[in-house]
Deep mutational scan, measured.
Amino acid sequence: NQASVVANQLIPINTALALVMMRSEVVTPVGIPAEDIPRLVSMQVNRAVPLGTTLMPDMVKGYA
Rank of each mutant, 00 (worst) to 15 (best):
V41F: 04
K61Y: 09
P57S: 08
L17A: 00
M56N: 05
V49H: 01
A48P: 08
T53R: 12
P38H: 08
V41H: 04
N46S: 12
L51T: 13
K61F: 11
M22N: 01
M56L: 13
R47A: 11
A34F: 06
E25G: 09
L51R: 15
A18T: 15
P33V: 09
V6H: 02
M59R: 01
L10H: 15
A3S: 10
D58W: 12
K61R: 14
E25K: 07
R23M: 06
I37E: 01
L51Y: 13
S42C: 10
M59G: 03
N8G: 06
P38C: 05
G62V: 04
P12S: 06
R47E: 15
P50Y: 14
A18V: 13
P38K: 13
P12Q: 13
Q9W: 09
A34R: 05
N1G: 14
P38D: 08
S42E: 12
V6P: 01
L40T: 02
Q44G: 04
L40H: 01
V49K: 00
V49E: 02
V26P: 08
M22I: 11
G62M: 08
M56K: 08
E35G: 12
L55T: 01
D58G: 14
S42W: 06
L17Y: 00
M56Q: 11
L51N: 10
M21I: 03
T15W: 06
L40P: 00
G52Y: 05
P33I: 15
G52V: 00
N46I: 11
A16N: 15
V27M: 06
V26I: 13
S4E: 01
G62F: 06
N1Y: 15
P12K: 08
P33K: 07
T15F: 06
D36G: 04
E35M: 10
V5R: 00
V5Q: 01
Q44R: 11
E35I: 07
N46D: 10
G62K: 05
I13R: 15
R23P: 03
P57H: 12
Q44F: 10
N14E: 09
A18D: 12
E35T: 09
A48N: 14
I37M: 15
N14D: 12
I13P: 13
K61T: 13
V20R: 12
N14L: 07
L19I: 14
V30T: 10
T53H: 15
Y63I: 04
Y63V: 04
T54P: 06
E35Y: 09
P12C: 05
A16D: 06
A64F: 07
L17Q: 00
M59S: 07
I37T: 07
Q2N: 12
M22R: 00
L10W: 13
T53G: 09
P29I: 05
I37R: 07
